[in-house]
């Protein structure tokens, strides 16, 4: 296990492995997205209260989940880079930030597009929306620190500290609908014994959630490869990789 981890965290091995994995991950992402969208937009019936507007849920909720999941991956990778100085961990953290920010933005924007017809307003300063907006600014902060300064490793350390401090916001977002009386509706799925959603809607929602996970893996590996190439452009393994057109 340690041998494998050590091998995997070597930039040269990761670069080659990621190059091989990306087409497969992209194909799985595409198939899952097709299945999830077909199930959500075509097969699932309209909601008895919200009509067809609820169909925004199939992109809104997976995006919101991803915004939290990616933040935890980013903070964990940042922490590992901070403590053990593993280059690959810094690259994973740096590459996760823009993807996480994108999902956070999608969650906020689609929520707004859902809120307008249902609540009659694009935005309210309630606990769930505000804490998610703070998450977006945390991502922006991490991205800004990444690109600040000449030395990438110092920048990685600074942004990892910000990411770790910002982890405090994650449980706040998750429990905000329970702790405060908000306009945002309560959890749809997490009540595992009796989710407040019908199977014909739950299945495409879960497929979309898995599709977003695979999408993240695809985009992350692509970004990580470019980032590695940029940081390591003088290493021997890069010369070899480029010679073999990898």
């Amino acid at each position: 296990m340690w041998y494998w981890l050590h091998r995997f965290s070597s930039p040269a091995y990761f670069y080659r492995f990621a190059g091989k994995a990306i087409p497969w991950l992209a194909a799985i992402t595409g198939l899952l997205l097709l299945a999830g969208l077909y199930g959500g937009l075509v097969l699932a019936p309209a909601d008895y209260q919200q009509g067809d507007s609820y169909r925004i849920i199939f992109i809104h909720v997976p995006s919101a989940w991803m915004s939290l999941f990616i933040y935890m991956v980013m903070a964990t990778a940042g922490g590992i880079g901070l403590i053990w100085h593993i280059k690959l961990a810094e690259v994973i953290a740096a590459s996760s930030a823009p993807i996480g920010a994108s999902f956070t933005f999608i969650a906020l924007a689609t929520g707004s597009l859902w809120g307008k017809p249902m609540w009659g307003t694009w935005w309210v300063w309630d606990a769930r929306l505000t804490s998610e907006l703070i998450l977006l600014f945390l991502y922006f902060g991490v991205i800004a620190l990444q690109s600040a300064g000449e030395d990438k490793r110092t920048a990685s350390r600074a942004s990892a500290i910000l990411a770790l401090v910002g982890v405090i916001n994650i449980p706040i977002i998750h429990f905000s609908v329970e702790w405060w009386n908000t306009l945002h509706q309560g959890a749809t799925v997490s009540k595992m014994d009796a989710p407040s959603i019908h199977t014909s809607m739950l299945v495409p929602l879960l497929i979309m959630a898995v599709a977003c996970k695979f999408y993240y893996a695809t985009s992350l590996l692509m970004r990580a490869r470019a980032e590695l190439l940029d940081r390591e452009h003088n290493s021997h393994w890069i010369r070899d990789a480029l010679k073999n057109h990898e």
Partner: peptide
Amino acid sequence: MGGYALYV
């Protein structure tokens, strides 16, 4: 989309 085309 049942009248919600713009939003969806």
